[in-house]
């Protein structure tokens, strides 16, 4: 048997915990969209390209859309719903490739996203080199 004063302490702690959990929950809910590291093409198109600030755009690099000329790269980023053309000057990360995730930071110039920095996002799958060749 748990003594009564101990039981009271457990209730108090439980109440305390529920209170803090709900505070944190509402704070996170209020910040919801600000915590996202990047916007998706759908987010941008839904807002009718009305983004004048710097922001980050993420999604998958569309297959067959990468065009390289010297240092300039152009490709289409898609979330399998909407797509946006990105142009970028600079060095691409090693894991940048078609059908793979990417997060670009920069700003919109008309309907084209001018990227200043490109980060590669990889997935959670790991498999040996040989297996993939088969």
């Amino acid at each position: 048997m748990i003594r009564k004063n101990r039981l009271n302490k457990i209730y108090l702690l439980g109440f305390f915990l529920i209170a803090t959990i709900s505070i944190v929950y509402f704070v996170l809910k209020a910040l919801d969209k600000n915590i996202d590291l990047y916007l998706t093409p759908t987010d941008v198109i839904e807002s009718n390209y009305e983004m004048n600030n710097q922001f980050k755009l993420g999604g998958m690099v569309k297959e067959g859309s990468v065009k390289k000329t010297d240092l300039e790269v152009e490709f289409i980023v898609t979330d399998f719903n909407e797509e946006i053309l990105i142009s970028y000057q600079g060095i691409l990360p090693n894991l940048f490739k078609e059908n793979s995730g990417v997060v670009a930071s920069g700003s919109l110039d008309g309907n084209i996203f001018k990227a200043k920095e490109i980060l590669a996002k990889h997935d959670e799958n790991y498999m040996p080199v040989k297996l993939e060749e088969k």
């Binding site: 915590i35 996202d36 590291l37 916007l39 993420g58 959670e124």
Partner: peptide, 23 residues
């Protein structure tokens, strides 16, 4: 899972592992 992040999702979940058994 909750937000768009650069960090990838968990490899090992209750439904299995997306790391090949060899590794």
């Amino acid at each position: 899972n909750w937000w768009n992040t650069l960090h990838q999702n968990a490899s090992i979940t209750f439904s299995g592992s997306s790391i090949d058994a060899e590794m």
